[in-house]
Amino acid sequence: MNRSRVIVVQIGLLVFSAVMAFSQEDPESVSAMLGPRGEGLIIARCAVCHSADLITQQRLSRTRWEATIEKMKHWGAEISDQEADLLIRYLSARYHPNAPANVPPLSHEIGKSEPLKQEPQAQRPVIGVAARGAGVFEHNCQACHGGGAMGGMGPRLAKNPILKLDVLFRETVLYGRGPMPAWSSVLSEQDIADVHEWLLTR
């Protein structure tokens, strides 16, 4: 190979790596940006079967995070493709192979997670639709509160006095309580009203 060809190749490589570096997401900013949503998803989508510490102690490459989430979906994790994409980006930015052993633990603090959609503050009260609520319940609540909301690992919600206390119900669902996940980063106000309405019919 002659000298000028070598130089051309070298310049090419330089340009290529500069472009790559530019387009690559900086893990720290990705993890800060996706943090609230990602943490919310872990609690809402994953903590049904195991506590979040099993997830946050891993230090995995993106491929292995992808494979892990695929396995969890296969086993019954209720997570949409879009949520899974976001969670994989978040996990591989925060819990990657070179991350320190003690990444600060997930914050379970109330109200930390961003609301799902920036809905304009409701002009009128949100009206729940029971028929939609059945689906919301099945995908998000049934694993813990049992079929027909008759109770399981979580308390029975059918005929539960809390259903009469609208504000308390909404806040318990939004922010979680004890082992009960916070749903603020996954469910909209409408979803919560729908599931509330459906529970009232049980």
Binding site: A47, H50, S51, L54, Q57, M153, G154, G178, P179
Partner: peptide, 25 residues
């Protein structure tokens, strides 16, 4: 059911128990 609800509340505590908790539930 109580065990699960309870275990979920446990955080790794090195000094309080004789075991090092890796997964709480």
């Amino acid at each position: 059911a109580k065990f699960l609800a309870w275990a979920a509340d446990m955080t790794p505590a090195r000094d309080e128990s004789t075991l090092t908790v890796r997964v709480s539930r």
